[in-house]
Design a protein around this nucleic acid. Structure first.
Lengths: 138, 138
DNA sequence: CTAGCTGCAAATAATTTGCACGCAA
DNA sequence: TTGCGTGCAAATTATTTGCAGCTAG
């Protein structure tokens, strides 16, 4: 995703069949200018730089909509740190439990071998790998 | 962990230096009779079968305590489905997003190859793998 | 005895919802 | 025009906390 201008954002929203609004354009620009890991509140904060009247509820609604359209993944790393990941390529995560930092690990850096054979009628939805690390100096 | 009787539970609590109380004994018996994946509310519900006066706050406090003592792992599978896993052996998880079922995958069934070299001062805390599957008939 | 738990209820935090108005097509 | 989206505030849900009484060691 390489969304920088308003036109890019409109094209992006149209491509998934989402009606265009000013707020959605701003939210798309925050998320898709480059890969980010942001909480709902961080998205709100950044959106308000350009669109100060945006409400929290709209950000939540839009993030939910984007998630349904597979524009973002909700990354479940910590109940107190739900973030939205705008990188939709297959990849894994490295999470520092002390600093809260999240880093992407490209899919070709790491392999998971031996995923169990799934019963028929069951299909793989997503494979999450989270490498949790600790950096606290003792 | 093989806790069935009150005595087993007391031994288990003592082994990690947790003072004994009636509620902690009941909670330990719910969790450690066999490996389970339970939400805080499910634990409360099961504890109340034998100890109906137990309060929700006590269950939350005790689960937190057990987590700090590494008696259980908090498994974050979905922001709406935080469960406590009483299996502390290394293992991975298979999660059915449609039924909500969680299944353990033994550590020797699956290998993760190519975990990035960690910077110095940073150490691995835990490696989580969640295989998310979909079973809904279309 | 007495420090530390417990139960209750109120506080907090994150997210969702209801409703009247306004904007995009 | 006209329905969907938005902002606001209230509702909801999950978890934590303050406090007075009780219990284990």
């Amino acid at each position: 995703m390489n969304v920088h201008t308003t036109e890019d954002a409109i094209a992006c929203l149209r491509s998934v069949g989402v009606p265009i609004t000013q707020q959605r354009i701003e939210i798309a620009r925050v998320l898709f200018a480059r890969p980010v890991h942001l909480s709902a509140d961080q998205v709100l904060e950044r959106v308000r730089v350009n669109a100060p009247e945006t409400s929290r509820a709209t950000v939540y609604n839009t993030l939910r909509l984007f998630r349904e359209k597979n524009l973002v993944r909700e990354l479940i790393i910590d109940p107190d740190r739900v973030v939205f990941d705008s990188n939709t390529d297959p990849h894994y995560h490295l999470y520092d439990v002390d600093t809260g930092e999240v880093r992407d690990v490209a899919a070709d850096e790491l392999k998971v071998v031996g995923v169990p054979r799934l019963p028929e009628g069951v299909e793989l939805e997503h494979l999450d790998v989270i490498i949790r690390v600790r950096s606290k100096r003792t």
